[in-house]
């Protein structure tokens, strides 16, 4: 029953993995108004290292609202020319809001982090 505790059910975790010149952020949980700033902090930290590629893996995200989308927009803008920003998303919780807002046309979306890392 511990998963029904508010602090457990309403949270987001970000796992940071380095793959050579690439960084993969594995995001899990719910990306909403309250948790989006945490991803924002992790993205800022990762982009400060100026990796060639930054993959944001959203495949373990169960809910993503407009606050989460906005964090991705800011990351896309901050990444600029130096860092290639890539997303991993599939399923209704993440891919649908990306597609409905047209953000999938600004940031490339892949089905797995391997695919995102190996993409040209």
């Amino acid at each position: 029953m511990e998963s029904s505790e508010p602090s457990e059910s309403h949270s987001v975790t970000v796992a940071v993995e380095e793959h050579g010149s690439a960084i993969v952020l594995g995001v899990a949980g719910e990306l909403d108004l309250l948790t989006a700033p945490k991803l924002q902090d992790e993205l800022t930290r990762a982009l400060d290292q100026r990796p060639q590629t930054l993959v944001i893996d959203l495949s373990k995200v169960e809910f993503m609202g407009s606050a989460g989308l906005s964090v991705l927009v800011v990351a896309h803008r901050t990444a600029g020319e130096h860092t290639k920003l890539r997303l991993v998303a599939h399923g209704n919780a993440t891919f649908r809001p990306l597609r409905l807002t047209g953000l999938d046309q600004a940031i490339p979306v892949y089905r797995s982090s391997d695919e995102a890392l190996n993409a040209e």
């Binding site: 599939h90 209704n92 409905l100 047209g102 046309q105």
Partner: peptide, 22 residues
């Protein structure tokens, strides 16, 4: 509008119009 299933052209048009938001 199944994301993993068949694409609905109507939603693609809406998606494109939504792109203006970004």
């Amino acid at each position: 509008n199944s994301v993993d299933g068949e694409e609905d052209p109507a939603i693609d048009r809406r998606g494109l119009s939504r792109a203006a938001a970004f």
